[in-house]
Design a protein around this nucleic acid. Sequence first.
DNA 1: TGTTAGCACTCGCTCGTGTCGAGTGCTAAC
DNA 2: GTTAGCACTCGACACGAGCGAGTGCTAACA
Lengths: 351, 351
Amino acid sequence: MLNDRKFKILQAIVNDYIETAEPVGSRTIAKKYGLGVSSATIRNEMSDLEDLGLISQLHSSSGRVPSAKGYRFFVDSMMQRRALAPDESLFLQRMIIENIFQAEYMMQETAKALSRLTNYPAIVSEPHMKKTAIKHVQLVPLDEKALLLVLVTDTKTVKNQVVNLSAAPGYETLTSLSAHLNRHLAGLSIREIDRERIDKMLAEFGENAHVLMPILGIIADMIQAEDDVRVYTSGVKNILAFPEFSDKATAEKIFHALEDRASLFEILGTPYAEATGIQVIIGEENALDLLKSCSLIKANYTIDNQGTGCIALIGPMRMDYAQAVSVLSGVLTNIRHVIDALGLRSNGGTD
Amino acid sequence: MLNDRKFKILQAIVNDYIETAEPVGSRTIAKKYGLGVSSATIRNEMSDLEDLGLISQLHSSSGRVPSAKGYRFFVDSMMQRRALAPDESLFLQRMIIENIFQAEYMMQETAKALSRLTNYPAIVSEPHMKKTAIKHVQLVPLDEKALLLVLVTDTKTVKNQVVNLSAAPGYETLTSLSAHLNRHLAGLSIREIDRERIDKMLAEFGENAHVLMPILGIIADMIQAEDDVRVYTSGVKNILAFPEFSDKATAEKIFHALEDRASLFEILGTPYAEATGIQVIIGEENALDLLKSCSLIKANYTIDNQGTGCIALIGPMRMDYAQAVSVLSGVLTNIRHVIDALGLRSNGGTD
DNA sequence: TGTTAGCACTCGCTCGTGTCGAGTGCTAAC
DNA sequence: GTTAGCACTCGACACGAGCGAGTGCTAACA
C-alpha cells in the first residue's frame, strides 16, 4: 500500500508528534530522521500521504499531524512492540508478590501500577461474577449486643459485617451455630437458599432461631454487593500534563467521567466480554462523545465461569501506543499469574 | 477599631470578592450594598481600610481585594455562622445511618460528604491509635492449604488475611485453636505477647504448633497496619473550578500534594492534637509554601485514650468561610454521634 | 522520471499601538 | 463630613505590521 519511503515518513511524523505534540514539518523530518532526501521530496510525499487521509494539516501553512486513520495504520502496521524495561518488570513482579494474598486490593494496585508506569489514567474493573457462592460462614463474638459475621465466597474474597442484636449468644453457642450454618450453606449461591432449608435451620437453631433471619439477610446483602462489579481508577490527574487537555473545561469533564461509576462502565463498554487481546480504540472510534478526542487501550481478562473484567488506559490520540500496549500486556500477564496462584483458573485472552 | 461604616464596607468587599473573584470597586459597593452614601465617600473609607492593611490593590487603578489580614478580621469579627440548610442536614443524617456500622468506611464517607457539600477538597485522617489491642481472633477454614485469620480490635475494626500453609488443620481443630488463641490473646496489645506466653501457647497447640508462629506474625503485621494512621481525600478535582488555580502548574502541584500521604500529614500539621474547635488558617499563616495562597479550615476530633484525628477543607483564600465552617461543624457533630454509637467515647473539641 | 533548489504564498504568533472603561485620588463646593 | 467633577492610571481588547515556519508549484538537473 505504501512504498518504503512513505512508510518511513509516516512513521517519523507519528513518532515526532507523539513526542513533541507539535505539527511536524518537512524540514524537521529531513534533518531529524535522515532519510537521505531533501525536504522538497518529503513535501511531495507528505502531500500524497495527506491525499491518502493518513495525515492532515491544521491550517494551510502548518506542519502535518497524524489523522485518526494515520494512528490506526501506525498501530496496525508499524508499531514496534516494546519489551518491558528491567525496572518496569521488577516493579510489576514486586506488585505480584505484595498482592497475591490480598485479592481485594489487587485491582486497585493494578490500576496504580498501570498509571505509575505509563503516566496515563488507568481504569480497572473487577470481573462480573455471575453467581457468587458461599464457601464459609463464621460468627465471631464481639460483645453482649453484637456479633461479627464473616463470609468467605468461592471467589476468595472475604467480607465481614457487624450484626447488632438485642442479645448476642456467647462464644460456644456461636461456634455451634457457625457449624450449623456451614453445613447448610456451604457451596450454595443465594438463590439456592429456599424455604425448606431455612425451616430446617430454624429448627436446628432452637432458642437462637431469632438470630438466623438477620444473619441470612446480611449474607444476602453481602453476596449482592459482591455481585456488583467494582471499578477502580488511578492517575487521573495525569491528564493535566497533556496539552490537548489544557482546556480546563475538557479536563474537568474527563475528571468527572472518571469519577463516576456509570460513565466508567460506558467507557469500558458493555458487553465487553467478547474481544480477546489488547484492543486499541482511536479517537472517533470511541462510542462516547467525550472520548472522541482520546484513545483507549484496553484488554479483558477472564476468570473461568465467573466472568470477564477489563483493564484500560486512557490518553490523548497522540499517546505512546507502543509503551501503553506493552505495559498493559505486562500487567495482563501479572493478573493471570495472580489468578492462577489463587486457584481461580484464568482464561485471559492472549494478545 | 473600625467604625460602623468601615465595618460594613469591609464586609461588603469580602463578601463580594468571595462571590465574584473580581476586585471590588467603590461604585459596586455603593450600588449593590446600598449604604446610603456615594461612591466617593466609600473611596475615602476604602483608602483608610487600605492604610490599615485590611484590603489591597493589585494595581493603582483596580478595585480592592481583601488582604490576608482582612480575611482574618472577617473570620474573627464579622463572619456570621450559617445554620445548615435542611437538605444539608438531611444529607449528613443519612450518612450517619448508612455508615454507623461500618467504621472502616466512615472516614472515606466523611471526606466525600465534606467535599460534596462545600465543593472544596476535603482531607480526613483517622485517629492515631496508640496501642491497638486484640479483642477477638478467629481462624476460619478455607481449603487444604489455607485458612483465614480474622482479627477484631478494640477499635471495632475487623481485618482478615489468608494464611497459606503446607497443610491446614480442619474445621474442628481450627475451632479449638481459635479458642486457645482467644484465651491467651484477648485484651492484649502486641507488646504484651511475650516469650513466656508464646511458650504456653505452643504447648497447648500440640501437634499444630507449627501454625502458631505464622499466625502470630500476621497478627503483629495487622496491628502494625492498624497503628498506621490512614488519611483520605475527596473532591480534589474541585480545585479546577477556582480561577486562582487556573494556572495548570499550581493545580498540578496541589493535586500532587493531595495524593501523597506524607504531604497530607504536613498539611494537617503535626502534632495536631493540641487545638480544639474549628481552626481557620489563612494564606501566609500556613506553614507550607504550597498553601501560602490557600486557606485551610480544620478541626480535630478525639477518641478517648486512642488519639486525635483531623478533618479539613482546602480552598483559595477567597473561600466561603461561613459555609465551610458550618459544614465542618456539622460533620464534626456527626462524627461524634457515630463515635458515641460505636461506644468509643468521643472527646471531640467543642467549637 | 525522480529529485532538488528556488520562490511566492499562507497563516499563526508576537509585539507595539490605540482605544475603552473601570476605578482611583484629589479638589472644590455644598 | 459628604459629594460631584475631573484628571489620571492601568488592564483588557482589538487592530495591524512584521516575522518565520511551512507549504505548493515550477523549472532545472541527473
